[in-house]
Each structure stands twice: as structure tokens, then as C-alpha cells.
């Protein structure tokens, strides 16, 4: 082998070794990387009781209720397979909507409801002017609340 080919081999081996190490390293610590749990995982018991965690999914259409005269709200987070009821008291982010994504931090109470102390809105990857969104809605009414795979 020429010295140049030796160096090429060395660089390739280095790259492959680091990729493999990263791949198995990342597989080993799954719980570190999942920023939030889906309702299905929560219903299946992925989270220990009294443990604080984040719950992520879609705010179910027509599930949002506010107790009159207070900041207390209640809504359902869904991944279109399972639902979790969320209770929260406080200001909501501007992008919080029914049919849009949300990530809530808190813990489950005895009734199996999620008591959140922080709510973040999760945006989807679609950007369009209001007129386009309006015409999409009339053409395909289901389009805006399509589940993310």
C-alpha cells in the first residue's frame, strides 16, 4: 500500500469506528433522548407514578375547556391512538390551538390525569399564508389535524 492509501484507510477506519460507537452509544441511553412521551406510552405505563415527565401530542379538537373566571384549563392530548386528560393553570403560549401539537411538563395524579406546570406549543412543518390555509380547510377538512407518523 502506498502511504496515501494507508492514510485513506486510517481515516475511513476512524470514521467507521466513531459512527459505530455513536450508534450504539445512542441506542444505549434511549430515555435521555426522548424529549417527551406519547399518550400511548403513558397509557401503557412507560412512566412511573409520581415521576415528573413531559407529555407530547396533539390537542384534541373540541376538548379544550376553561373554568370561567380563572386560568384553570383542561384539554385532551392525543396521538390518535390513546388520549390523556391534561389540567393546567396559567398562561398558554400564543400557538396553543386545538388540532396543534403541544408538550406539557408535569406528573400524573391519582385519577390518571396529567397535571402540568409548563406548556409549550409544538409547531408542525407546514408554513402558509392564512388565505391558503383557509382554502385548504374547505378543500380537505381533515388536512390540518393529520397525525404525524
Amino acid at each position: 500500500m502506498t502511504p496515501r492509501k494507508e492514510r485513506m484507510t486510517a481515516v475511513s477506519i476512524l470514521l467507521i469506528a466513531v459512527s459505530l460507537a455513536t450508534f450504539f452509544g445512542l441506542r444505549g441511553c434511549d430515555n435521555l433522548k426522548e424529549y417527551f412521551f406519547d399518550p400511548s406510552e403513558v397509557v401503557a405505563g412507560a412512566v412511573k407514578k409520581d415521576q415528573e415527565f413531559r407529555l407530547g401530542g396533539m390537542v384534541k379538537e373540541n376538548s379544550f375547556k376553561r373554568t370561567a373566571g380563572s386560568l384553570d384549563v383542561r384539554f385532551i392530548v392525543t396521538d390518535f391512538a390513546e388520549d390523556v386528560i391534561v389540567r393546567y393553570s396559567g398562561l398558554l403560549p400564543d400557538l396553543f390551538r386545538e388540532g396543534q401539537g403541544v408538550v406539557a411538563t408535569g406528573r400524573l395524579n391519582d385519577a390518571g390525569e396529567f397535571e402540568a406546570h409548563t406548556i409549550f406549543a409544538k409547531h408542525d412543518e407546514n408554513y402558509m399564508p392564512p388565505e391558503v390555509a383557509e382554502s385548504l380547510k374547505t378543500q380537505h377538512p381533515a388536512k390540518t389535524s393529520e397525525p404525524r407518523p
Binding site: 406519547d38 407530547g56 408554513y127
Partner: peptide, 24 residues
């Protein structure tokens, strides 16, 4: 690969569609 707060990419080579309206 993972659940993130950041939204997924609007462009995708495999899907070939853009989630961004042409005016943007």
C-alpha cells in the same frame, strides 16, 4: 428519530414535498 419540540424538516428528499407555501 426522536420526539423533539423542534418541528420536523419541511423539505424531504424522499417525500419530495415542501411544507412551505410557494409565497414563502
Amino acid at each position: 428519530w426522536w420526539n423533539t419540540l423542534h418541528q420536523p424538516a419541511s423539505f424531504s428528499v424522499t417525500k419530495g414535498q415542501a411544507g412551505i407555501d410557494s409565497s414563502m
